[in-house]
Design a protein around this nucleic acid. Sequence first.
DNA 1: GCGACAG
DNA 2: ATCTTGTCGC
Length: 234
Amino acid sequence: MEFAELHGWCMTPRQAIALQKALAHRVCTESRLPQNLRHVAGVDVSFRRGDSLFHAAVVVVDLADMACVEAVCAAIEIRFPYVPGLLSFRELPVVLEAFRKLRSTPDAVLVDGQGIAHPRRLGLASHLGLWLGLPTVGCAKSRLCGEHPPPGRRRGERVPLVLDGTVVGTVLTTRDGIRPLYVSPGHMMDVPGAAELVLACTGRYRLPEPIRRAHQCANEARQRARSDINSPFH
DNA sequence: GCGACAG
DNA sequence: ATCTTGTCGC
């Protein structure tokens, strides 16, 4: 199976699973981060219950001062239902559409979802990494699979996330006294590097700054589209 | 068969 | 993810 087969996105869950197994072999779990890491992107997707549109945003920030370098968003129709383990088939089309509009190329991409901490080692972050050929990190707010002891409650404390006897990620506390994040390499990234990058992008909030901004950006785009229905002029 | 289950 | 108001706490 080739990437081209994804163009239609008209797959059955069974076909999607077969494709994941094939693509998982292409994922690189060694760090390919540049020495001078400067521009980190965050991606997020937003949708509304009674609507059939997905909105995605990509925000690139400068790691030195968290200043926004570039921000874009896109909107397309939903083409796939939510199925745990098949999230990329639902969200990747709109995410790729947003990246198509991006003019700059980030050094790394933080994704709202899992990387290789996935039943077939191909979470949304890994799948996106393959498409983009860029280092990606999966940064999920809850667990999809794998086991771990409870991590410490202080910022920076972490425990390994183990799946089938393999460490596939890090359960990382990003703020004192809050629920941890499930951080795993997406593509061109290793387990320790993924956790360090997330920590480097996280300040006074639970989620890393690039993802927070993308989340905000995608929501604003969705609400603008919503209001345009009632007042298309303006 | 039952429970788990990113967003 | 989204539906939703106020509310308890640092």
